[in-house]
Design a protein around this nucleic acid. Structure first.
Length: 271
DNA sequence: ATGGTAGAAACTCTA
């Protein structure tokens, strides 16, 4: 069975619901994982998704900030929410697909919104950066994020770190910029390695090639110099490594009217 | 420790 999944930091789902609808009508992924929905669950535009054929929704929203959602054509067996760093921030939700979705073997999906970390890349001076580093450490230590053997797990989201040199437009110029400092890159890669996750983008695209999923709003024209970063990630467990059949970054979405600063990232698997 | 823009919400925070 073909299974496709998109992750997208939407930067307010209510403001950009028409862009989401445009994307879903054209790409038709089975599952959409959103980050930065920025609304409480009662304000989530559920009906619009149902009309688009996405009847199953798992929400972890909060007022004004953060917020993650899983929107699906396929039903879930279970959903779960985890907290990190003893904060109630809405930064994680997971769902499991199984028999109800006609899957013979279970598939577990984690959707993350890792703290951005503020501007100053020093945990002693900047509590937001300290929080980000601690969050990454807790992701590494989190037992449910350690798929083993035949476990079919997927981890997606805005991880707010561009870990490799060609995940940013200028490695040298971004070494002291939060999202690409050595310490956070090390911590993200440590979580990835310890959990034996496969980074789908870098499995499909050579390390020597620049890959971005985010372009700052703070540029008059985002296309000038192509100053992007790869902040949005799709990781799969080893049991799914050979199941990936396609990977796509919808770069066009950055040019849509009133866009998010992130674009959709989609994986297709044969499960 | 430049400033630039964007969103939610409320007169400021977060990214």
């Amino acid at each position: 069975m073909r299974f496709s999944l998109t992750t997208w930091n939407i930067n307010s789902v209510r403001l950009r619901i028409n862009l989401v609808a445009k994307f879903l009508k054209s790409a038709r992924p089975d599952v959409l994982c959103l980050q930065e929905t920025k609304c409480i669950d009662d304000a989530f535009p559920l009906k619009r998704f149902k009309r688009l054929g996405y009847e199953h929704v798992a929400l972890n929203g909060q007022k004004g900030y953060h917020g993650v959602a899983v929107i699906s054509k396929l039903p879930f067996e279970t959903t779960d929410i985890r907290t990190f760093c003893d904060k109630i921030d809405s930064r994680h939700i997971s769902v499991a697909f199984g028999e109800k979705a006609q899957l013979t073997k279970p598939l577990v999906l984690h959707n993350f919104y890792v703290p951005a970390g503020g501007d100053i890349p020093d945990p002693a001076l900047n509590p937001k950066f300290e929080h980000k580093l601690k969050f990454l450490d807790e992701m590494k230590a989190c037992e449910p994020l350690h798929p083993r053997g035949e476990d079919r797990h997927i981890l997606v989201g805005d991880l707010n770190v561009a870990p490799h040199e060609n995940d940013v437009w200028s490695h040298k110029q971004l070494l002291k910029v939060v999202s690409h400092t050595p310490i956070e890159c090390e911590k993200l890669l440590a979580a990835q390695t310890y959990g034996e996750w496969i980074d789908v983008a870098r499995e499909r695209i050579p390390m020597s090639q620049k890959v971005y999923t985010w372009w700052s709003y703070r540029a008059a024209d985002w296309t000038i110099g192509d100053r992007g970063r790869r902040l949005d990630h799709i990781w799969v467990s080893r049991a799914l490594k050979e199941s990936v059949t396609d990977f796509k970054i919808t770069r066009d979405a950055r040019s849509w009217e009133r866009p998010s600063d992130h674009v959709p990232v989609t994986v297709t698997l044969e499960v």
